[in-house]
Design a protein around this nucleic acid. Structure first.
Lengths: 137, 137
DNA sequence: ACTTGACCTTCCAGTTGGTGGAAGCTTTAC
DNA sequence: GTAAAGCTTCCACCAACTGGAAGGTCAAGT
């Protein structure tokens, strides 16, 4: 564990697992505060900034949209937050994931069933194309 | 059932459930062949074109990426195709869907577990934020 | 001292699959 | 006759980055 220190974007990237390009993008997008600069315009990051970046990274890995990540970050830094707000965002995201899962599962099963019925040989007959080309539903 | 007839993009859109904008986009993207034109530059569609659009629409509803839709369409119009090719595309897509499903399911479960442990009240304590802000993995 | 390579900076383009709107021409309906 | 509806093209925008070009800076090696 190194003590507090300022670092360049490259090191902050290495420590947070967020690539430099993405850090700049988050800054531009208003997800994180603009970094301080050295006299030669290099961005400078503190350990606290790295923590923030890690937070963003974890939230993204859980699939939260960036807008929600920004809100979560605000709540994270607000000592007077109500956990109700956080839970609301989390449950909203779970609901969105459930919708997406249902959609993808339906697709997957439809195609898998069709593929199973397809011979997969040299001949043209194919239930997959037949289904896609069906005139009637 | 109307007999064969030429129609404008609006009617083709209505019959195929693919909006005019999207039809033009598919043409621009090379998914479908450029439509014939009248002397006043209006696009003209035949019943066969509508069939093609419906094919594209169904393939998209099953989540096939546009590139794969283009390939499927080519196979669909090739009487000498091997169903092997079609099946290969279908199984590749099933595999992609399975990967996505695994990813989303993992996200969903992680967040659901965290949310369950969150009181969701006025107070700031929150396992969701705690997890996102965790210094150690 | 100088050069090379690895950083950093900004800006622009591309990705995927469309959607919305502006500006302008036709055609249709009243 | 005129206005609404529908057609045309082109440009911009959504998410969430990623890649590359052009140029500035800095540390190390010779």
């Amino acid at each position: 564990m190194k003590p507090n220190g300022m670092m360049t974007i490259g090191e902050a990237a290495a420590r947070s697992s967020v690539p430099p390009k993405t850090i700049r993008f988050y800054e531009e997008a208003g997800i994180i505060k603009p970094a301080a600069r050295t006299e030669n315009h290099y961005r400078v990051y503190s350990d606290a900034d790295v923590e923030t970046l890690r937070f963003v990274q974890r939230a993204r890995m859980l699939g939260f949209p960036l807008k929600d990540v920004a809100e979560l970050l605000e709540l994270y830094h607000d000592r007077k937050r109500a956990s109700r707000e956080v839970k609301k965002l989390a449950l909203k995201h779970v609901a969105a994931l459930d919708r997406k899962l249902a959609e993808l599962t339906a697709m997957r099963n439809t195609i898998a069933v069709l593929a199973e019925r397809c011979q997969g040989n040299d001949r043209p007959a194919c239930p997959i194309l037949a289904e896609l080309g069906a005139t009637e539903h």
